[in-house]
């Protein structure tokens, strides 16, 4: 309980009032939630085959902890097989396509480095002093599902998806660059013991992850910004990258979060001497 309410400006700025009271709502069609609960799924069999192919290929090739051409495998991932230059280029392109999505606010906002979920494209701290708590689902009387249900709510503008919660602290992405995120993502010590196949499934099938592409609109009816990569392009990129052994390409200045530093100071490059 705070004597200074943190959310008192909504509806008081002269903009249109909250459109939630009965009789004041916009037409039903415009206030209905987006159809987020039904998502297209790619065939699980195809994913398993791809993952199996990646695993098999990795086993057939000599392990190269640093990868050819300074391309390193994330800790805990299958050691990458020797890639041809064309395959390497394809995997690198896929890596960056995937990361274009994963570094968007729709993803990073719930992978904070301080236990505080973020909101909006500006990634400001969640209203009401919300933080993750021990179980990542909020506090005793302020669970995430106090407001966030299993789908976006078209009336209130509150986003929702099954299992709405924060990522664990070990999976903090906020402030990390693409390479550090990839290493964290593929490290079983940090990712909850997930295998590459598990990560493939998580990144391409998990409903909470896929919410990013159908994020609904806010309380003013303004649509949230989805990741800058179309969902199917992103999914194909994830499959390609993991099938290639999840190689992490060399740092590029343009990949640093919010700056043009070559790599994250919080997570030194695994390729560094």
């Amino acid at each position: 309980m705070r004597a200074q309410p943190q959310c008192t400006t909504r509806g008081s700025s002269g903009a249109r009032p909250p459109a939630t009271r009965r009789g004041q709502n916009p037409p039903v069609a415009s206030r209905r939630p987006d159809p987020t609960t039904v998502r297209r799924r790619v065939g699980t069999t195809a994913l398993l085959l791809l993952a199996a192919a990646a695993s098999s290929a990795a086993q057939e090739s000599p392990a190269d902890p640093h990868g050819a051409g300074h391309h390193g495998a994330p800790e805990g991932a299958e050691a990458p097989r020797e890639l041809t230059p064309a395959e390497r280029a394809e995997a690198e392109a896929a890596f960056h396509t995937m990361m274009e999505a994963l570094t968007s606010p729709r993803c990073v906002n719930c992978h904070p480095n301080d236990g505080v979920p973020k909101q909006t494209d500006a990634a400001r701290a969640h209203l009401f002093g919300v933080a993750g708590s021990d179980d990542l689902h909020g506090y005793d009387a302020l669970r995430c599902n106090a407001c966030h249900q299993a789908s976006n709510d078209g009336w209130s503008g509150v986003p929702g998806a099954p299992g709405w919660s924060l990522a664990p602290a070990s999976m903090a992405w906020e402030g990390l660059d693409r390479r550090a995120i990839a290493r964290s993502m593929m490290d079983p010590a940090k990712n909850g013991g997930r295998s590459a196949d598990d990560i493939l499934h998580h990144l391409t099938e998990h409903e909470l992850v896929l919410w990013a592409w159908e994020p609904g609109g806010d309380g003013e009816g303004r649509p949230r910004t989805p990741p800058p990569v179309p969902l199917e392009t992103y999914r194909a990129a994830v499959r390609t990258w993991i099938a290639a052994g999840a190689p992490i390409p060399e740092a590029r200045a343009a990949d640093a979060p919010g700056s043009d530093a070559p790599d994250s100071p919080a997570e030194p490059s695994g390729d560094a001497p």
Partner: peptide, 9 residues
């Protein structure tokens, strides 16, 4: 659990 009923379909 405490729930905000305005955002609970």
């Amino acid at each position: 659990d405490a729930v905000r009923s305005c955002s609970f379909p």
